[in-house]
């Protein structure tokens, strides 16, 4: 063996020892792990998470069913079907309100365009992000789940609400009957179906 090969091999042995010392040292480093379900990380102040439909201070819905959010959405995730407010029983202060309002959270890219497009600040993104579920259908959030409950605080934006953001805006178990979850609905074609329904509503 030439001396250069021996030197190289000795160098390799040195490299192995160095590697061993590095891994050994890492054993005593501080680990950056956050024990997630029990300890939660503080989200960024403007984190984009699950949507919420807000209300005015008197409990009326802010959404006026204008469909601007739906047109602004780059992912085609929002479907709005507006309807006239009945004079005696107003849902929103405007002329119209959203009869159906649905967001397909599987399509949504959480860009916040809907938030920007909305003229009445009705749709906002909250920092909620734990939406995992077993069925595709349950990712279609309808008004039942998007609309902020009256007792969660009305008027203020989610971040400024005294009680903070509700941890859970509606459990999956409770909403199974509200959407088409039970029928094994395919989320991809939801927009088409709603368009048909909208045509039906318009012709009435």
């Amino acid at each position: 063996m030439q001396s250069s090969t021996i030197k190289k091999n000795l160098y390799n042995v040195g490299a192995i020892l160095k590697g061993l010392s590095i891994t050994f040292g890492y054993m005593f480093r501080k680990r950056p792990t956050i024990q997630y379900p029990s300890v939660k990380k503080q989200h960024a102040p403007r984190f984009h998470g699950l949507h919420e439909l807000r209300r005015y201070g008197d409990g009326q819905e802010r959404c006026i069913g204008c469909e601007l959010c739906s047109s602004a959405c780059p992912a085609n995730a929002i479907t709005v079907i507006g309807a006239e407010n009945a004079p005696g029983d107003r849902v929103s202060p405007g002329e119209r309100h959203a009869a159906r309002y649905e967001i397909d959270e599987l399509r949504c890219i959480f860009c916040g365009m809907c938030e920007e497009a909305c003229p009445t600040d009705a749709i906002v993104l909250t920092p909620r992000f734990e939406m995992a579920d077993y069925r595709r259908g349950s990712f279609i959030y309808d008004k039942d789940r998007l609309l902020v409950p009256i007792d969660a605080g009305v008027g203020a934006a989610p971040d400024e609400r005294p009680g903070g953001i509700p941890g859970d805006l509606g459990r999956v178990a409770d909403i199974k009957s509200t959407t088409d979850v039970a029928e094994g609905y395919s989320a991809t074609w939801r927009g088409e179906i709603l368009k048909t329904q909208r045509r039906g509503l318009a012709s009435q």
Partner: peptide, 13 residues
């Protein structure tokens, strides 16, 4: 556990 610590993880816990 040891592999975890050396890779800055806590290992099974």
């Amino acid at each position: 556990k040891v592999l975890g610590w050396m890779q800055l993880r806590p290992g099974p816990n």
